[in-house]
Design a protein around this nucleic acid. Sequence first.
DNA 1: GCAATATCGTTTCACTTGCAACGAGTGTCA
DNA 2: TGACACTCGTTGCAAGTGAAACGATATTGC
Lengths: 164, 164
Amino acid sequence: MRDQFNLSEFLPYRLAVLSERVSKRVALAYSESHGLTVPEWRVLVHLSRCRQVSVREIHNCVNLEKPRVSRAVARLEAVGLVDKTESQRDHRLVDISLTEAGWKLLDAIVPEALAVEQQLLSGLSEGDRERLLELMERLHSVLDADPRAATRSRMDLGDSDGPA
Amino acid sequence: MRDQFNLSEFLPYRLAVLSERVSKRVALAYSESHGLTVPEWRVLVHLSRCRQVSVREIHNCVNLEKPRVSRAVARLEAVGLVDKTESQRDHRLVDISLTEAGWKLLDAIVPEALAVEQQLLSGLSEGDRERLLELMERLHSVLDADPRAATRSRMDLGDSDGPA
DNA sequence: GCAATATCGTTTCACTTGCAACGAGTGTCA
DNA sequence: TGACACTCGTTGCAAGTGAAACGATATTGC
């Protein structure tokens, strides 16, 4: 025996497997039924909180590369779920906001997504849930202090509710 | 306010963000320094445990689609890290195993990967670490009972060490 | 023995992805 | 004012991805 390295016990691998499995399950709520991709879903959800934002802000807030946001927004606009208008104050920026159809779609999807989350958490007590989040937060903290790790979007930090 | 849905507090999203961040950090150990992709890394690591396996078995064990395994193995063979030979017992199967160069590469990478894992876990006590894994396992259990969720590879279950 | 079925690894094809480059607009400072 | 550096959102391009189809081999049922 040369290396005794068990992939199944390697934390990064375990996280990846669990995350992917969870993502796939949740995606059924918005992909299968409503034809949304993950980036589109994230953009819509973010808009429901921030009302009118630029591509850059979305990029900074929901962990998506800039081109990905741009393309997701383009598709969402083509389907009539969001509006894009050139900002008046700064003509480089685009003001993106939900249309009425976008709001309606979210009204339908969000409860499903929350139901899946509730189902996932059904095996955990309230204390367990908090412990899990706290442990995950501690892993983040290690990465926050690591210069070679990717930086975390400020919105995902525990503090206040972002801009404006 | 219509929906009050906070993406940053949505467990599936949090898992995805953490997992991606961790993956990127770990990937530095094998990507930046040794030019490996994630699938290639998983294949190599799996081979270090199972010595001689088919594409199908790798696919079943390390959470990679079949074509992805096939292509990863092809690249690894092209670079001389693995050997591919047609199986004698069943001519449809391919026996894949590490070359000496493959072993050497793993000897170099595995300690780096473990070091990153250790660093990640540095903020957690031994008890914390066990609790985290146990909580993750409980999320898996919920999905195991959900017919609409993806099935989990048997190797990632807590039990025995797979075949052969 | 032989057709029908199943399984293996590979490949095809359409699509997504990330990086880098781009044009357009804004700020800055002489 | 004008040149320079910067930021915005988008797009080109090469690489990666998953679903389905493929040829080749094995197995099953008759």
